[in-house]
Design a protein around this nucleic acid. Structure first.
Lengths: 230, 230
DNA sequence: AAGTGGTCTAGACCACCGC
DNA sequence: CGGTGGTCTAGACCACTTG
């Protein structure tokens, strides 16, 4: 165990055991570095980790305080759907439903400006059962190569993640009841609950793709695990 | 803009523009530090950021490679429900539904061992409309003080987040259709979709609390925004 | 204005792990 | 074994922010 890990662990202990209660101002970096017998740089490394996890808050001149807990945060990981399925041990398959070149009329949200769009709908199956319905708009301004891709063999999800760089991602998670089309392709009853992930990807303010991924609620959930520095 | 930010930005540019394509092995730290005219430590700071975001992968002896994109990851932030509501500009209110001291029969999952449990059900409202149904088990082994708290004025959510330390959190997100009790308290029709967040908190292998938070799907979603280093 | 955290450097040494 | 990334130090200087 490295020095910064020992320091971090001891600081964490003092915080969770409330030896350092919420809101308390900690001694200065240098004082603590001295107490733990490490260099200031090592001390800072430990404190940087704690800052990142939201356990302490640091401000110049004001000092370092034990943070007030106001939220739980964790890392959400959404893998390529093929990987997600094969990792679970199931057989992956994919089917293209439609591929339509379109104009602004598809752009319900207006987020793509005047770009020509490719509208691709497809379905991902696990052991032959519907797993995810993928409904995607691709900006041909941002991704002209998509025009030459028929998406019969490779899904837009996988193709884009591998080929196209992005600089920002916005993700929305929500529950819905299946509309007629969703119900049909996911083999659900009309009105059954579905879990929807919507994601918009940008490359420097240029919208790249907008995707709506719909899962049957009964067989889908997302888990995150946060353990404090193991 | 600091030196490490400039270096990081330039490296990011080379990766997204595929000057450094996926899978490529980068020059050594020292060589790059030299090229960018910074100390090795500064170079490492930039590369550490890129590693953390999953853009490069580093291994001793093997070197540094541009990572293959296999997932989108982002940070999920779940605030205290009161804060969530007031931040949206709505009026927050809270009502305790039931508070039952119980034994193992409540422990459907067996995750709490033989601990005595407190079972608290409550509802959080935004502008008088049902926002979240909170159904919670609290381990009195881990949190004996909960026995003395009646939860009439303060919700278990807020009380626990503020008072009780934890070391690990497991979160599950999913969609469901409302059962009878959920529908009644959330003023939904039977079978309407709901968004469920389930969270279990531990303090060093000792289970602290297990909570199921249920939201009407129509008025709830979770958003995350990841921009690559602004 | 001054105290605090933040950045940067130059260099030594460590430890994992692929060749 | 040796090359790579990883840790640690000691010290200088910077810049934000609040009392």
């Amino acid at each position: 165990m490295h020095a910064y890990e020992k320091v971090r662990a001891e600081m964490l202990r003092r915080i969770t055991s409330q030896v350092w209660p919420q809101g308390m101002t900690l001694p200065h970096e240098e004082v603590l570095a001295d107490e733990f017998g490490v260099a200031r740089g090592t001390m800072r490394r430990a404190m940087a980790d704690l800052t990142e996890r939201g356990l302490i808050e640091r401000k110049r001149k004001a000092g370092t305080k034990v943070a007030a807990r106001r939220a739980h945060s964790s890392t959400l990981n959404i893998p390529i759907v093929r990987v997600e399925i094969t990792d679970s041990g199931a057989q992956y398959s994919y089917k293209l439903l439609s591929r339509v070149l379109g104009g602004p009329e598809l752009d319900a949200t207006g987020r793509f400006g005047r770009s020509k769009l490719l509208h691709v709908r497809s379905i991902h199956l696990a052991d032959g059962r519907p797993y995810q319905l993928e409904d995607r708009l691709i900006s041909l301004d941002a991704v002209p190569q998509a025009d030459a891709q028929d998406f019969n063999e490779i899904s837009p999800n996988e193709w884009l993640v591998e080929k196209v760089p992005y600089s920002a991602v916005r993700t929305i998670l929500r529950a819905e009841s299946a509309d007629e089309m969703q119900a049909k392709h996911l083999k659900l009853g009309h009105g059954d609950p579905v879990f929807v992930i919507e994601r918009q990807t940008q490359l420097d303010d240029l919208p790249v793709t907008l995707v709506k991924m719909t899962h049957p609620a009964a067989s889908f959930s997302i888990a995150t695990q946060t353990s404090q520095f193991r």
